[in-house]
Nucleic acid binder design. Structure first.
Lengths: 368, 368
DNA sequence: TTGTATGCGTTATCAT
DNA sequence: ATGATAACGCATACAA
């Protein structure tokens, strides 16, 4: 592996010149820069990140910690974050806390030595621990609202409010909220918005707990959901909603025939069947902007407790309809989503209509 | 931030002693270790990871590079890999190459200085470039067969062979393979196995190209797939298959009524509707074992070109049935998957039957 | 068992 | 515009 000295020798310049050719080219003669770059290319020289970090005190690394890599929401978020970090010349450590605060703390400690800052997505840590770690390294939170810390919040409250209104307008009188982790800020926000809107509209409101936001947990909670005697449910996220759909299918039940369902995230929603009515969250952008925020505080450009908020919209697809038994007061359009064009969505007042709601179903085994 | 020198001075020992108190305590007097540890604790000293890495050449880091973070296959793989690395005391860099060789090369170069080794999942690099990078740092390949390099291969050939046989036994006479990236080793394997088996069984065989393994690409290729005049298709992976299902749905077509469909990966398959007949790949285990392999070569325990192979099984779910028009020669069981228990699967000859194939469908909008 | 001296690959501070 | 040289914080061969 060639070092700066190898390049210096081959180019017949000093190591300082080589260093400057990469770090401060403007301080050098253009021809010299070109020469050094050429020799470096030929030798396959790449500045040693570790040595630079030791010398400058800046590691050039950030860490991204998420509760569950396999959740499509976090996957999309990671994609945006990693891409943005790379563009800015930073490398990204990945940490999967598996929804446990202890593991999250371990990752924070182990990584803090070689990282300039953290992006904590949906941290499961207590507020005091978050604050403690924030003292040691700059730290940006996603979907966690701690006063005084830089944070990026995806405001799902209007989305959930629109969703409850949507269900009410379809004629539903009793709805359930299938909850996420009780420690989760997002969960509190969504729960609160749904409960308040339901109360305002005079709907009966039930909360169904789950072990964690996952397909399996969603599937497992189907029993208690069915026992709640509701005609519609809002799930904490798309993955949970997908699990619920599977749980209903296992029992020969139908969506939205036997139960209307709304998810949250919007990444999974248009891909599954029936296409899931969901709250779209711009998760990729969230990852990007969180990293931008972190690099901002590292560069001293941002003030201490900056807070960025991202909006959400309800996207109506194929899993919400009028309840089975009660009188239908639904608007005609909700009875024939097949007429919407497949890949487009028209926006209006934070509500969109999504496509892909008309998969024909004859010939599926198990179906007469 | 206290350094090793501060501790040495405060404890009235040499810096080497402080260093050994943390690195090789067994070389020191027990009382000395205790003294140094105590002083370090009091001063809040923590060994500097960066400096140690520069001095020893061992960073305690590995890098994981994948073509697409948002693909559930890679997400599951990353989860296993990251978890295993953490257990062994290694931190994990994440790199998303976005399916492009250039970006992959950039990541390899930038990371090589602060990483002890790489795990390259489904590398899109040319063989010569892979070999070039392997000279600089230890490197383990996943689903890429380069002689002489340690690699973990998921052997999907038997799975695809069983899948073609399964389709043939249902009465299909013409099948398509919806391809992945032509650079992909997995794609060549799957294409080859499917083509050979089809030829052996006297089936007409068509290859449908796609831009990349994604939902959108699968959806986009539906037109050409329908033009191929086949009754069944095998997709490169589950994500592509899911896209095809959406593309068919957009045109009012049915799975498996109008087209039987088989995916590959098995992670998405049981979650979607209809449950996808797919080839199960143990992707989490693949990530774990690839990291284990890498740490093995780092520790000098493994020989140079070790090759681990993971087997696959066909899991029959709800997207394969007898073709619409041609005579049904299907075995009775394939007509009634509803009788299988939801979450279990019985294995036999590399073929399993998966559950969740009986979602009732009345009441879905767009369906009479 | 402990101390001394040197090197790891860069960047930064002086010089020139 | 470029070069010489001293840190950066630690590990280790060698000496004691």
């Amino acid at each position: 592996v060639p070092t700066i000295s190898d390049v210096a020798e081959a180019a017949k310049v000093s190591r300082a010149t080589v260093s400057r050719a990469f770090g401060q080219p403007h301080l050098l003669n253009a021809k010299t820069v070109e020469l050094v770059r050429g020799v470096s290319e030929r030798l396959g020289y790449v500045p040693n990140h570790t040595a630079r970090a030791l010398s400058t005190g800046r590691a050039g690394n950030i860490a991204l910690v998420v509760p569950d890599i396999t959740n499509p929401f976090f996957a999309a978020l990671m994609r945006g974050a990693q891409a943005r970090a790379r563009e800015e010349g930073y490398a990204t450590f990945l940490g999967d806390s598996d929804e446990t605060p202890e593991l999250e703390a371990v990752l924070l400690r182990k990584l803090s030595a070689q990282v300039e800052g953290f992006v904590l997505a949906s941290s499961r840590l207590s507020e005091e621990r978050v604050l403690a770690y924030a003292k040691r390294r700059p730290l940006v939170l996603i979907n966690r609202d701690v006063e005084g810390l830089p944070r990026l919040l995806i405001d799902t409250r209007p989305g959930f409010a629109r969703a409850v209104e949507h269900l009410a307008s379809l004629g539903h009188r009793a709805i359930a909220y299938v909850a996420g982790p009780s420690i989760s800020w997002s969960n509190r926000e969504r729960h609160g918005a749904a409960a308040r809107t339901a109360k305002r509209l005079g709907l009966r409101f039930v909360r169904i707990p789950t072990s964690r936001p996952s397909f399996e947990a969603g599937q497992a909670c189907t029993e208690s959901l069915l026992g709640a005697n509701v005609t519609a449910a809002l799930a904490f996220d798309d993955v949970t909603a997908q699990g619920i759909m599977a749980g209903l299918a296992d029992r020969g039940l139908t969506v939205p025939g036997d139960l209307s369902l709304v998810g949250c995230d919007g990444i999974l929603a248009p891909m599954i069947y029936p296409p899931l009515t969901s709250i779209a969250t711009h998760c990729g952008e969230a990852g990007e902007r969180a990293v931008a925020l972190l690099l901002g505080v590292l560069g001293g450009k941002h003030k201490r407790g900056e807070c960025v908020s991202l909006s959400t919209e309800l996207v109506i697809r194929g899993t919400t309809a009028a309840p089975k038994i009660s009188g239908r007061k639904a608007s005609p359009r909700s009875a024939s989503p097949r007429k919407t064009s497949p890949r487009k969505a028209s926006s209006c007042n934070g509500v969109q209509r999504g496509g892909r709601a008309k998969l024909s179903l004859e010939g599926i085994p198990g179906k007469p």
